[in-house]
């Protein structure tokens, strides 16, 4: 297990390096001179040249990659071109807003597991059918639409929940999280519950469950250790991948709800060609997504040892 974990982590680091390098290449091909954009049309050629020098824009591509990674090793991600503050500092300041949104969305998404389990056990019952209809309807609606209607209903009409910003103090922060979380999470609850239901039904029909029943093992224990445990790996893999989608939904949701966060930061940086900040935010989200898939893979191995031996 430990050897597998180390191996998996090494692979993850390689993936991050590759992804960041690929991003570097893509930014090279964006039209326009960053120096021009940053300093405006009236800057003198000397000023522009100085900025290019500072950003290593005149060096060969490989050298630029090297500067970026060596900076990264020392915790230096460059400086924000508009505010002149270190990018790392900005990221550290903004990350908690997004992280809390993603975390609360994941927590809400986990609700899909009991819903799916109950639907599978009481297959074709009222709950199963109702949750099926609701789930599919929710999957079909994009987060931005759900977000707008949530604001209209809970903030504008009922005036129950705040619509804008992230709030301060524990309870305020929590209240401010409710609507953005639901905007992203409702879709995922539906999706996960369908997925858990389908794999539960498959496992319920398997031979080892019959064996367990034939030995009179209590029903709760069968459901937990003989059905859910076998059915969950598929769901966990999807959840691992879903982090990427949740994060990209977070960009939109942060704009809709005017929340601070990595998403909003990324959006603003792209619009203003603030390259160091773009690189920083993308790096942060890459690390985040790769970490999430790594964790889901390791969880799968813990739940189902066959996964490890197949690799």
């Amino acid at each position: 297990m430990l050897a597998y974990a180390i191996q998996r982590i090494i692979v993850s680091i390689l993936i991050i390096i590759l992804a960041v390098t690929a991003l570097f290449v893509m930014i090279q091909f964006v039209p326009g001179d960053p120096a021009n954009v940053m300093l405006g049309p009236r800057a003198t050629p000397e000023l522009k040249e100085a900025l290019r020098e500072r950003l290593h824009l005149n060096d060969a591509f490989i050298v630029q990659v090297y500067y970026f990674f060596s900076g990264l090793m020392q915790g230096d991600l460059g400086v924000d071109l508009t505010s002149n503050r270190p990018v790392l500092g900005i990221l550290i300041e903004q990350a908690p807003f997004t992280a809390s949104l993603v975390a609360s969305t994941l927590l809400v998404t986990l609700l899909g597991i009991p819903i799916g389990t109950y639907a599978a056990v009481h297959r074709d019952g009222f709950f199963d059918k109702a949750s099926g209809v609701v789930s599919v309807s929710l999957i079909a609606v994009p987060p931005i639409v759900i977000g707008l209607y949530l604001i209209l209903f809970f903030s504008v009409s009922l005036q129950l929940l705040p619509a804008i910003g992230a709030g301060e103090g524990f309870w305020e922060i929590l209240l401010h999280l409710v609507l953005p979380t639901l905007a992203i999470g409702l879709t995922w609850i539906g999706y996960v519950s369908r997925l858990v239901r389908a794999s539960m039904i498959e496992v319920l029909g398997q031979n080892h469950v019959k064996t367990a029943r034939a030995f009179g093992i209590p029903n709760q224990r069968i459901l937990r250790a003989y059905v859910l445990r076998v059915a969950l790996p598929a769901t966990i893999t999807v959840l691992g991948v879903s982090i990427g989608f949740i994060l990209s939904s977070a960009v939109i949701v942060e704009i809709v709800f005017s929340r601070p966060g990595i998403g909003k930061l990324m959006y603003d940086a792209v619009i203003s060609r603030n390259y160091p900040v773009v690189m920083g935010t993308v790096l942060a989200s890459t690390v985040f997504i790769v970490t999430a898939t790594t964790i889901s893979d390791l969880l799968n191995v813990m739940l189902d040892p066959r996964t490890k031996d197949e690799n």
Partner: peptide, 29 residues
Amino acid sequence: RGKDLAYVSQDPMSALNPTLRIGKQMLDI
């Protein structure tokens, strides 16, 4: 079940829980 009645199923390949150790399954019963 598992006390007065015991059952050995058709296909040994799929009769055991793939995610639990043998000892654990023998404890469970």
